[in-house]
Design a protein around this nucleic acid. Structure first.
Length: 351
DNA sequence: CGGTGACCTTTCG
DNA sequence: CGAAAGGTCACC
């Protein structure tokens, strides 16, 4: 058994227990009391942490992922170049992880972004944030594979977390590649868009319980393939608004899903997903004039995003994930459910 | 622009 | 059991 590898990292910069279950990725599972297991690229990672370091073990093939480029994981069929790189792998079932896994994790957790400073700034401008921040330190935005991120959130529409997780799992098990078995459990990669664009897939997904999202997934993958190779990941270097518009050309991708993808995998820290919950809480606690809005129209959606962007600045999307993380926890305490302490929440539903 | 209803199925209360 | 679930799309 290989030993744990470590990366220096304060628990206030990254708290796995607050970040991994915050509804960004649906693929991390708690393993025992301290460990988290998940798949990044073509490797299975086992993670835990102390107050000063992030610790990990890697299982499976050596990842071909290069720092900053998850392209090869994204179902590109641009082949030639990525193939050439991938061919370099010394596919040993090596007990010692390759040197590059530090880089993969630093990239995934975006450890070069100084969360401590951001928290401090946001606490200065918002009392609600300050209160929530004390209870939930170390919440940061992951830098996910755009394909995983996109598929996950196409599944999220009008759906519950529990089922979404199962659907993502099913996508990987049925259309991804097996990676390695760890303690009796096989792990799979995120499927390539090529696989999901094949004829017959929609029927299979329907049978797997995806409902109307089956069509969205297949058609979105087909659309991705019709675009230039690298189109999706290329949105990382396009302006926020443009990336958002482009994403919304995909079936099943509206404003909310587009913002999730912008924020969580396309390097748009100011993107701010507004769901019904965020809308309600914001109307109650911040923008009272929205209390009489009847639905989450594009206008209201923009107002809410702009409000937070004005208040929290360039990384408003990151602030938003801290602010609302408490409300997604399965075991949230109903008595204290609120944004910040002492602020009333939940208006009753009018119908 | 804003309002309405359908959409699949599972989980939740 | 029925309602709700991190929406989106089509249509008025």
């Amino acid at each position: 058994m290989c030993s744990w590898r470590t990366i220096p990292c304060s628990i206030t910069e990254l708290c796995l227990d607050h970040t991994l279950p915050s509804g960004q990725s649906f693929r991390w599972k708690k393993n025992g009391d301290n460990d988290w297991v998940g798949v990044l690229g073509c490797s299975v990672y086992l993670l835990n942490q102390t107050s000063t370091q992030l610790r990990y073990k890697v299982f499976g093939k050596e990842s071909e992922t290069k720092s900053g480029g998850l392209e090869s994981l994204s179902g590109r069929r641009s082949t030639t170049k990525t193939k050439a790189k991938a061919a370099k792998i010394n596919g040993v079932v090596s007990p010692s992880p390759p040197a590059d896994h530090d880089t993969v994790l630093k990239d995934y957790f975006q450890l070069t972004v100084c969360l401590h400073k951001l928290y401090s700034t946001w606490s200065d401008v918002d009392d609600n944030f300050k209160a929530v921040a004390q209870r939930f330190p170390g919440v940061r935005i992951l830098r996910q594979d755009p394909v995983e991120n996109l598929l996950s959130f196409i599944c999220s529409s009008n759906n519950n977390i529990s089922r979404i997780s199962g659907m993502v799992e099913n996508l990987c098990v049925h259309f991804g590649e097996p990676i390695v078995e760890v303690s009796g459990q096989m792990y799979y990669s995120v499927p390539s868009v090529d696989k999901l664009a094949l004829p017959g897939v929609e029927d299979t997904l329907r049978k797997l319980g995806f409902g109307y999202r089956a069509g969205f997934i297949v058609k979105s993958c087909q659309t991705i393939l019709e675009n230039d190779p690298g189109w999706l990941v290329g949105l990382r270097t396009r302006p926020y608004q443009e990336a958002r518009e482009q994403l919304m050309t995909l079936p099943g991708v509206g404003p909310k899903v587009a913002d999730c993808v912008c924020l969580m995998s396309l390097d748009k820290p100011g993107a701010l997903p507004v769901d019904t919950h965020v809308w309600q809480i914001t109307a109650t606690n911040y923008l009272k004039q929205l209390n009489n809005t009847k639905s989450l129209t594009p206008t209201v959606y923009t107002q809410i995003g702009d409000f937070y962007r004005t208040r929290f600045g360039e990384y408003a999307g990151w602030a938003h994930s801290v602010l609302f993380t408490a409300d997604l926890r399965p075991n949230k305490n109903k008595e204290t459910e609120q944004v910040g302490d002492g602020v009333a929440k939940k208006k009753k539903k009018l119908k």
